[in-house]
Measured scan of single mutants.
Amino acid sequence: IGSLMYASIFGNVSAIIQRLYSGTARYHTQMLRVREFIRFHQIPNPLRQRLEEYFQHAWSYTNGIDMNAVLKGFPECLQADICLHLNRSLLQHCKPFRGATKGCLRALAMKFKTTHAPPGDTLVHAGDLLTALYFISRGSIEILRGDVVVAILGKNDIFGEPLNLYARPGKSNGDVRALTYCDLHKIHRDDLLEVLDMYPEFSDHFWSSLEITFNLRDTNMIPGSPGSTELEGGFSRQRKRKLSFRRRTDKDTEQPGEVSALGPGRAGAGPSSRGRPGGPWGESPSSGPSSPESSEDEGPGRSSSPLRLVPFSSPRPPGEPPGGEPLMEDCEKSSDTCNPLSGAFSGVSNIFSFWGDSRGRQYQELPRCPAPTPSLLNIPLSSPGRRPRGDVESRLDALQRQLNRLETRLSADMATVLQLLQRQMTLVPPAYSAVTTPGPGPTSTSPLLPVSPLPTLTLDSLSQVSQFMACEELPPGAPELPQEGPTRRLSLPGQLGALTSQPLHRHGSDPG
């Protein structure tokens, strides 16, 4: 009997000691992992102490058991019943959930998450997105703005933001810190809205009876308010094209079509300037034949640059190039080494500058006005007194259609001029006259002087055409309008007829 009692007592005591040691061994194993994590990542002392304290409290609170892992091991129907039991206190005593059906309560219970916070733990920081609604079931918390405590909340209090009033989550206007050990039930806004969409009859009752104890939403960050730039940057990543407008005076608003859609830094370009900076079609017209890549860069430059609305530039004389043409100036200075066709295309550029300027006046029909002061630039669209967005969009579309028509007509005119030049060069190729044979009589004449090349004649003739079109064909006081194609086609051969009437002889060394 004594040996039996000794064996039973010894066996029970050893089993008890073994169970104690097993729990202690698990605790030390998990604690060792936490300390190894702290050492590996070199976490500083204040945060390291918070980690160790939280682990110790969580171990004593749950005995080292992962409740979520245990809950996920059950089937979904059983999980709903378990969640309904775990959140029964909240669902029974909170006013917004009263009167809900059994199915609605089960769906809500599945969406709730339980959070346990030790003292000093910050649940929400200032500036964080308010993605959830919090219900306090135990403990107390404090809300701070800077170093000032603005509120202390306790059991059955609710904090967050009214989700039904805002389409997008706002930002917190303060820090939420736990004063004691707290148990909180939180539900994400997407989950709550999903359940309320499934039960629309409960939705009206819920929003009407929901009383948020403390609204954390920062009202200064609401979209459309003066301080909402940061919020707009976070939620409006896919922005449309940006529009900046110059201020319109009362006198300017009476004149229709007073602005032109141009790229940034293009205030001095012609009315047909689009795409790359520098001139019509993204580059100076005089350098068009020598740089074919300008047409390839036109599309990307047009689509990537934001639109700006600026006044037209001052008018340019008909014979003056659009500006920024070092290529043609070098050719004029060193005409001995340049291609003979460069002079002809220089005359073509003069005609283009004249036609572009006159067509700009035809479509816009307003006098040039000086540029406004820099303080009046970049007025935002949302400022008071601005035109409605639809009106601005319609004006932009009208300007775009005008620019497209202008570009089409300029292309047709350019093709006409090039065809005339090619026809003239085919009839009378460039050549130098040879020395004529002296006559049989004693009164022999001296050799004839060489005839100037055709490109120079073409430049003079085209300059005469531009001056003739600019000065004589337009009646005084009438708006400057571009001439039609047949009129220009008839004027060019008439001007060139006198020049080509002389018999030109080919030089023996000319390969053409």
Rank of each mutant, 00 (worst) to 15 (best):
H188L: 12
L421A: 06
G265S: 11
M469W: 15
R246E: 08
F345R: 05
G299W: 08
P475Y: 14
V428W: 14
F468Q: 14
S334N: 15
D250S: 11
D197V: 07
L366G: 13
P223A: 11
G360L: 07
V435E: 13
G356H: 07
T436V: 06
L504A: 10
D183H: 14
R168Q: 13
R409E: 03
H205P: 07
L406F: 05
R241S: 10
L133W: 01
P264R: 10
S501A: 08
S140H: 12
L499W: 06
P450M: 06
T219I: 13
P285Y: 12
S272E: 10
R395L: 06
N215E: 02
P292T: 06
P311Q: 09
P476T: 07
Y199D: 02
P440F: 15
K171Y: 09
L192P: 03
T458C: 12
K242V: 14
P438Y: 09
K240S: 15
P340Y: 06
T229C: 08
S303Q: 13
D183F: 08
E142L: 05
A261L: 12
L421Y: 13
S394F: 07
G127M: 01
A151K: 08
P280D: 14
P321Y: 15
N164M: 08
P169V: 12
S501I: 12
P200F: 01
S287A: 06
P372E: 08
L381C: 09
P200Q: 05
D397H: 04
D197Y: 08
R217A: 08
T253L: 10
C471A: 06
Y199N: 04
H185P: 01
D175I: 06
P493R: 10
P292H: 13
G347K: 04
H205S: 14
G270C: 13
R386S: 08
K171S: 06
G324C: 12
L381I: 13
V428Q: 14
R387P: 08
G146Y: 06
V465P: 11
E258W: 10
S290W: 05
G139K: 01
G347V: 11
G263E: 13
S463F: 10
Q467P: 12
S286A: 15
P453R: 10
L449G: 09
P321H: 15
R248N: 09
Y134Q: 03
G139M: 02
P162G: 03
F235E: 12
N156L: 05
D460P: 07
I379T: 13
S291P: 15
V148E: 13
F214E: 03
N404T: 11
L399K: 01
S208R: 09
G268W: 07
E473D: 13
A498F: 08
A431P: 08
R189Y: 11
S290P: 15
G174N: 11
R248F: 10
R387Q: 13
F245K: 10
N215D: 04
S411E: 08
S313I: 13
W207T: 10
F352D: 01
D336S: 11
L381D: 11
S209R: 10
I136W: 01
P372D: 08
S140K: 13
L193F: 12
P384V: 12
N339M: 08
F352K: 04
A434G: 08
S335V: 12
R189G: 03
N220I: 12
K242Q: 13
L179D: 01
L454W: 08
A178E: 03
G154M: 10
G512S: 10
H185F: 07
Y181A: 09
R302Y: 05
F206T: 02
G174P: 02
D250T: 12
E142Q: 09
R316D: 12
R387S: 12
R247C: 11
F345G: 11
E332Q: 15
R145Y: 07
S433L: 08
G497W: 04
L309K: 11
G154L: 04
T180S: 10
A470G: 12
R239W: 13
S209I: 03
V417S: 04
F214Y: 12
S260F: 09
A267Q: 10
L133N: 03
E473M: 11
Q467H: 03
L129G: 04
S342N: 11
S225F: 10
Q464I: 07
L396C: 03
Y432K: 07
P306F: 06
A398H: 15
K251N: 13
E480I: 01
L163M: 10
Q419I: 03
L193I: 09
P511R: 10
G227T: 11
F159A: 03
D357E: 14
H505V: 11
R395K: 13
P430S: 07
L129F: 09
M425C: 13
L499V: 08
D128G: 03
P162K: 07
L179H: 06
R177E: 01
S244Q: 10
E296Y: 03
P306V: 13
L496N: 08
K186S: 14
G288A: 13
L399C: 04
D510C: 11
K155G: 06
Q483L: 08
D330H: 15
L504P: 05
P318D: 11
L403F: 10
P442V: 11
N339P: 06
K251L: 11
L420Y: 09
P306G: 05
K251I: 09
P322S: 11
T445C: 10
F245R: 10
P285V: 10
G265C: 07
I222Q: 09
E296K: 05
Q238G: 11
Q419F: 13
G174C: 14
V435A: 12
A431R: 09
R274A: 10
K242F: 07
